[in-house]
Lab assay of single mutants.
Amino acid sequence: MSIQHFRVALIPFFAAFCLPVFAHPETLVKVKDAEDQLGARVGYIELDLNSGKILESFRPEERFPMMSTFKVLLCGAVLSRVDAGQEQLGRRIHYSQNDLVKYSPVTEKHLTDGMTVRELCSAAITMSDNTAANLLLTTIGGPKELTAFLHNMGDHVTRLDRWEPELNEAIPNDERDTTMPAAMATTLRKLLTGELLTLASRQQLIDWMEADKVAGPLLRSALPAGWFIADKSGASERGSRGIIAALGPDGKPSRIVVIYTTGSQATMDERNRQIAEIGASLIKHW
């Protein structure tokens, strides 16, 4: 058993032996400061991975655009179909130039040979490839079927209504393609630790998130040596930015963190910096 498999397999085991986890309101002070700095709403939640207890939250039940963070949920739905014998990670999917949409750094290189379902999930999560996400959405029946999958998990909040890139429109008060921090954190925890997916599929999902290559300026920039993080970021119109993550010290995840912001006029660099500073406060007061 690899170190990674050891880590995921023991998450339920550690729940019975973990020390009490204490919240630190200092992080919420930073979240509120980020709102002031960005001139935008910020949603935040910090969840204990083992118990599911909410440690801190700010606007946990307000809607925010999901942006590309939905791609983790999408690959969770794909893995659920794999577990049920309805899909194979090794199945190759062929597509054409007409299928390519904006920001497809991986799929645009494989027009001649296509990509496997496994490769598409990797591209969608680690590189946020939009065509990969659309191709995967097609395999499960489209955005409405992803919403149905989430409903069956008990998440009646999170919804996907459109495809890439239209889902990134982020119109104020538009509930399409949105979630709430509390709903996203709970759903992510179920995917990573619950019985919905097999152990192998849970491991695969967290491996893809751990290999994320496009979230460096966010929480990863504040991470001390030896800490673990598996994450997925997102960005969209109207100053929207977000990240969902499982992270913790000693090389294993122990908390879920979800951060969303929307409605800012700030630059992408400034949005990144504010999220990184929230992460730094979280780690300092861990």
Results as ranks from 00 to 15, higher is better:
Gly76Ala: 11
Glu175Cys: 10
Leu218Asp: 02
Arg189Gln: 14
Ile206Arg: 10
Pro217Ala: 13
Asp250Gly: 14
Gly52Asp: 05
Gln97Ala: 15
Glu35Ala: 02
Arg162Cys: 06
Asn152Ser: 14
Tyr260Leu: 09
Leu282Gly: 01
Val257Ala: 02
Ala77Gly: 06
Ile3Lys: 15
Ile243Leu: 09
Ile11Arg: 04
Glu87Gln: 06
Arg81Asp: 03
Pro172Leu: 10
Leu73Lys: 00
Pro172Ser: 10
Glu166Pro: 02
Ala9Ser: 13
Ser201Ala: 10
Ala77Asp: 06
Ile259Asn: 00
Arg202Ser: 14
Gly239Arg: 03
Val8Ile: 15
Ala215Ser: 11
Gly239Val: 02
Asp269Ala: 12
Thr198Met: 08
Leu160Thr: 06
Asp174Ser: 05
Ala266Pro: 03
Gly263Lys: 06
Ala200Cys: 10
Trp227Phe: 04
Leu38Cys: 05
Asn152Lys: 14
Asp250Ser: 11
Ser254Ile: 07
Tyr44Met: 06
Ala245Pro: 00
Thr198His: 09
Asn152His: 15
Leu219Ile: 14
Leu160Phe: 08
Gly226His: 07
Lys53Ser: 12
Ser122Arg: 11
Leu146Ala: 03
Asp177Ser: 01
Val82Glu: 03
Glu119Lys: 05
Met268Ser: 07
Gln86His: 11
Ser96Glu: 14
Gly216Gln: 11
Asp269Ser: 12
Arg241Phe: 03
Asp250Thr: 07
Ser254Lys: 09
Met180Lys: 13
Pro12Val: 13
Asp129Ala: 00
Ser201Arg: 05
Asp212Cys: 04
Ala84Ser: 14
Ser96Asp: 14
Leu38Asp: 05
Arg7His: 11
Ala225His: 14
Gln204Val: 12
Asp250His: 10
Ser254Met: 12
His285Val: 04
Leu197Arg: 02
Lys53Leu: 11
Gly85Trp: 05
Pro65Ile: 02
Ile243Gln: 01
Ala9Pro: 13
Ile93Gln: 03
Asn130Ala: 02
Ala211Thr: 06
Ser80Pro: 00
Glu87Ala: 04
Ala148Val: 12
Phe228Tyr: 15
Cys75Val: 13
Met153Asp: 05
Ala246Arg: 00
Leu137Thr: 05
Glu166Trp: 09
Val8Phe: 15
Val257Leu: 07
Gly242Ala: 10
Leu73Tyr: 03
Ala235Ser: 10
Ser80Gly: 11
Cys18Leu: 10
Leu28Gln: 04
Tyr44Asn: 00
Arg162Thr: 09
Lys53Asn: 11
Val82Leu: 04
Ala170Asp: 15
Pro20Ala: 06
Phe64Val: 03
Pro143Ala: 04
Ala235Gly: 11
Pro217Ile: 04
Asp161Glu: 05
Asp129Glu: 00
Lys284Leu: 11
Pro143Ser: 02
Ile54Ser: 05
Asp207Glu: 14
Thr126Lys: 04
Met127Ile: 09
Leu38Thr: 06
His5Arg: 12
Leu188Trp: 01
Leu10Gly: 09
Phe6Ser: 09
Glu87Arg: 00
Arg159Trp: 04
Ala16Gln: 11
Ala84Asp: 13
Glu166Ser: 12
Ala9Val: 10
Thr126Ser: 10
Arg41Glu: 06
Leu191Val: 06
Glu87Lys: 00
Arg238Tyr: 12
Gly216His: 07
Leu135Thr: 04
Arg63Ser: 04
Arg220Ser: 02
Asp174His: 03
Met67Asn: 15
Ala280Asp: 12
Gly263Val: 07
Leu167Pro: 02
Ala182Arg: 15
Met153Tyr: 06
Arg202Leu: 03
Tyr44Val: 04
Arg220Asp: 01
Ala222Val: 15
Ile256Leu: 07
Gly194Ile: 03
Thr186Gln: 12
Ala246Thr: 07
Leu282Val: 11
Lys53Val: 14
Ala133Val: 00
Leu223Ala: 06
Asp269Leu: 10
Leu49Ser: 04
Val257Ile: 14
Arg241Ala: 06
Asp177Val: 01
Gln88Glu: 13
Thr187Ile: 03
Thr262Ile: 06
Arg238Phe: 13
Ala246Tyr: 08
Ser80Asn: 13
Asn173Thr: 11
Ile11Thr: 10
Asn50His: 14
Arg271Trp: 04
Leu19Pro: 10
Pro181Ile: 01
Arg189Ser: 11
Ala246Leu: 13
Ile171Val: 13
Ser254Gln: 14
Phe6Tyr: 10
His5Tyr: 12
Thr158Ala: 02
Leu188Pro: 00
Lys53Glu: 14
Gly52Ser: 04
Pro65Asp: 02
Thr179His: 00
Leu73His: 03
Ile244Arg: 00
Arg241Asn: 06
Leu192Val: 08
Ala266Val: 11
Ile278Met: 05
His110Gln: 07
Arg202Glu: 07
Ala211Cys: 12
Glu164Val: 01
Glu145Gln: 14
Arg176His: 07
Ala246Val: 13
